[in-house]
Design a protein around this nucleic acid. Structure first.
Length: 224
DNA sequence: GCGACAG
DNA sequence: ATCTTGTCGC
């Protein structure tokens, strides 16, 4: 039986089963004739217990100019459990994305893509719902084996699963600073995930789209 | 049983 | 993620 990727009313054991079923639907290559015109960064903050605030910032892939910012806050019930982040942040993201006028060609998420225990991290799961290319750029490690990458910006080392398959990369986006964990979500491969992550990470360690989304998520949290 | 553990 | 100001350093 086919389950919907946006079924949030599940207990933890059922959520895990859903992830195992959805992983097979992932496509690991860009759509035919893919053209990157607009991209988005997503982030979620928690103004208080049981309340989440999501922000999506859309930028021009050419000029880097901010084209649109959408946000929404609502009650969150699912707890934070490593490996089940999409069930906590997914509902509010899906609600927020409906408020966008511009539909981005690519999304950056603050979390893992397929570099996940069941191959379905936040970025991968949201990609299946969006049916758009998604990339996960996490600030810390969750799953996979790797060697520390070189110390220069742009250097990276592969993230591998238990069988040695490459599921992402540990990328040094800033010399001398902690690397980020990049992995493809849906409709994209590891190589392009690294390429786009480096291309859109300019001044800081985190890609501009998600970095800006995070800034807004913190700013809006205070004005509530 | 003992660690590891996105945000 | 969140609790929290100024401060040392590149």
């Amino acid at each position: 039986m086919q389950m919907k990727p946006d079924n949030w009313n599940l207990k933890t054991d059922q959520a895990i089963k859903l992830q195992n079923q959805l992983r097979s639907r992932l496509i690991s290559s860009l759509p035919e004739g893919f053209e990157l015109q607009t991209l988005a960064g997503v982030d979620v903050s928690f103004p208080g217990p049981g309340v989440g605030l999501c922000v999506i910032v859309v930028l021009s892939a050419v000029t880097g100019e901010v084209l649109e910012i959408a946000h929404h806050s609502m009650k969150v019930t699912f707890p934070y459990i490593p490996g089940l982040l999409s069930f906590r942040e997914g509902p509010i993201f899906v609600e927020t994305v409906t408020r966008l006028k511009v539909k981005p060609d690519l999304y950056f998420f603050d979390g893992q893509g397929i570099a996940h225990p069941r191959g379905l991290g936040l970025a991968a799961h949201m990609g299946l719902i969006l049916k758009k290319p998604t990339i996960g750029v996490a600030k810390s490690h969750l799953f996979g084996h790797y060697e520390e990458p070189g110390n220069e910006k742009g250097t990276w080392s592969p993230l591998k699963d238990d069988k040695g398959g490459i599921i992402g990369a540990v990328v040094r986006t800033r010399a001398g600073k902690k690397p980020v964990f990049v992995s493809p979500g849906h409709l994209i491969d590891v190589e392009h995930s690294i390429e786009y992550t480096l291309k859109y990470t300019t001044k800081f360690r985190i890609p501009e789209p998600t970095r800006l989304a995070h800034l807004w998520t913190q700013k809006l949290k205070k004005s509530l």
